[in-house]
């Protein structure tokens, strides 16, 4: 009965012995039901995402340079071979790790903290909640421009404050410093992304039955124990899926870097995503850009597989 409702299916059908025809009808309905709910999403995605994706992937094996329209055609693995000696590509790969996990880690930790702080009743909660969610509402392109502005010592006090605190030697623009440039977009990304984790985790926290905490308090559990034994395990499914989705999303997210540093200075803040963007839209070399995108795709698939593997192991270890 793999086609029945995932849990307690037998409970529903056990008491009933319907005549054979109805039974066949019912079992067909059961088989078809999940696809009925899925079909709008599947049809839309097949047409508007999967098909273009396949076409986009096929560019990686072709010469498609808009500046060189006569040199077209299939070239096999030429672009992939060229990748090996592409210094910018390897630098961008390294930066992608820093960019993705730096942004993601900070967004998640602060977002979780914020969700926990906001999940209890206190005076002024509604106002604060509305205020802290605001960064999410700013278009990413505009937040990029705004943050580029904020790091500029001529038109923003922030570099001066950082210098006064001893974090910078003197008030200068970190976006122009090859060592620090990537920190700029990461800060902007963290600022923009905290509300996402805060809202999602708050919605998750809302669905944890309050009785669990009441029972735990009666049993003398400390706040920390309540957090590790009730909150975290029950939030785990939402945490796992949001972390996975955001990793994929941030790894592909080029707006902030393109707007704030354009990958510079000297490619020091170039990520794979921003490299793909500039290869495709500045050099107009779609073939090579697609090869780089294919590598990113493969890396993300491996990452997702590792995450799913870990999750499976965790579920097995927990003894269920």
């Amino acid at each position: 009965m793999s086609s029945s409702a995932s849990t307690s299916g037998p409970v529903i059908s056990s008491g009933l012995t319907p005549p054979p025809t109805t039974h066949r009808k019912r079992s067909f309905k059961r088989l078809a039901e999940p696809y009925f709910y899925l079909s709008p999403a599947l049809m839309l995605l097949a047409l508007v995402m999967i098909l273009p994706l396949v076409v986009g992937l096929s560019y990686a094996y072709q010469n498609i340079e808009l500046l060189n329209p006569f040199d077209r055609g299939w070239v096999g693995f030429k672009h992939f071979i060229a990748l090996e000696s592409d210094r910018v590509f390897w630098l961008a790969l390294k930066n992608t790790f820093v960019w993705t996990f730096g942004s993601l880690g900070l967004q998640f930790i602060f977002g979780l903290g914020l969700a926990l702080l906001l999940n209890q009743a206190f005076y002024g909660r509604k106002l604060i909640q509305a205020l802290v969610l605001l960064p999410w509402a700013v278009p990413t392109f505009l937040s990029g421009l705004n943050w580029a502005w904020l790091f500029n010592p001529v038109i923003s006090p922030i570099p001066h404050w950082l210098a006064a605190l001893g974090i910078l030697n003197e008030p200068y623009n970190i976006l122009a410093d090859p060592e620090l440039a990537i920190i700029g977009p990461i800060v902007a990304n963290v600022w923009f992304g905290i509300p996402f984790f805060a809202i999602t985790l708050m919605a998750g926290l809302q669905s944890i039955p309050k009785d669990l905490y009441e029972a735990a308090v009666i049993d003398g559990a400390t706040l920390w124990q309540q957090f590790t034994r009730i909150t975290l395990p029950l939030l785990a499914p939402i945490i796992a899926i949001t972390l996975l989705l955001r990793t994929v999303w941030i790894a592909n997210f080029a707006d902030l870097i393109v707007v704030m540093t354009n990958g510079g200075p000297a490619n020091s803040s170039q990520t794979i995503a921003s490299y793909i963007f500039s290869t495709a839209y500045k050099k107009l070399d779609f073939g090579y850009a697609s090869a780089v995108a294919t590598v990113l795709l493969l890396l993300l698939i491996i990452y997702a597989a590792l995450l799913f593997g870990m999750r499976k192991k965790l579920l097995e270890n927990s003894g269920n």
Binding site: L45, I50, P52, L53, G56, Y59, N252, L296, L297, I301
Partner: peptide, 14 residues
Amino acid sequence: LLTQMFPLVMVIAP
């Protein structure tokens, strides 16, 4: 999940 893993820049033309 796959549809989220490929940069949008590459699917615009198709």
